[in-house]
Simulated scan of single mutants.
Amino acid sequence: HILGYGLDPHHPLVQESLGRVLEGRAWRNEQILEKLNELGLELDWAEVQACAGEDIVGRPHIAQALIDRDYVSAMDEAFDKYLAKGRPAYVDRYRLYPEEGIRMIREAGGVAVIAHPFSWETDDARLEAGLRTLQALGLGGIEAVYSEYTPEQTVTLLRLAKRLGLLVTGGSDYHGLAKPDIALGRGFGALDVPDTCLPPLLAALGPDNPWVTTPNLKVER
């Protein structure tokens, strides 16, 4: 994933890119439901939409609909049996290429940061090479503090960020129903993103960025 901090959500390139992503997601959802129905697991769109409420429909909502129909007993079972990659109802999704995402974020005034990079590449040397390639395209930072990282992995990424001159950010990877054990901002309970991550990020975004708010927080830019 490429994270975008401080970007203008109304920028034409953002709207155009997100439109393509949403169209791809809608097509994917239809294909997943077709596959499930072919497997004898009858679901209709209204059931899935009811699980999503006002959220954008994704696989977690389809999984919840399967639970509600008693086809499976838990979210993990829905993914393990049907919805995960390689399972019978899996459908690949449309995604932006990294260079497209980075360009979109930068043109919209934001800073592009790669999320949990060890999920992308676990070999240190290959990871550094990949980050250098993305940095040449405009990548600005690394999510070095993350719910599922060991202390050793965090230290490795902090050192890598310093060596490459990239910003450091952190995140819980909260995904609602998809990851019920992860709390927003706290991960599994012990996540602590250092306050020292914020000033460099704000400085990179600039003092006039209208999409950055820091209520009740005094930060020297």
Rank of each mutant, 00 (worst) to 15 (best):
D173N: 09
D173T: 06
D173M: 07
Y174N: 06
Y174P: 09
H175R: 09
L177H: 12
A178C: 11
A178R: 14
K179S: 13
K179E: 12
K179N: 10
K179Q: 14
P180L: 03
P180S: 10
P180T: 04
D181S: 12
D181E: 15
I182A: 07
I182Y: 02
A183H: 11
L184D: 05
L184V: 04
G185W: 08
G185S: 11
G185D: 11
G185M: 07
G185I: 05
R186T: 10
R186C: 02
R186Y: 09
R186S: 13
G187Q: 12
G187I: 04
G187Y: 05
G187K: 04
F188W: 14
A190I: 02
A190S: 15
A190E: 15
A190G: 05
L191K: 00
L191S: 02
D192R: 12
D192Y: 03
V193Y: 01
P194W: 06
P194T: 03
P194N: 09
P194K: 08
D195Y: 05
D195A: 14
T196D: 13
T196M: 01
C197Q: 09
C197S: 10
C197M: 05
L198E: 00
L198K: 07
P199I: 09
L201G: 03
L201A: 03
L202A: 12
L202Y: 07
L202T: 07
A203F: 01
A203S: 14
A204K: 13
A204M: 09
A204W: 12
L205Y: 07
L205Q: 08
L205R: 04
G206P: 13
G206R: 11
P207M: 01
P207W: 00
P207A: 15
D208S: 15
D208N: 15
D208C: 04
N209V: 06
N209K: 10
N209H: 11
N209I: 07
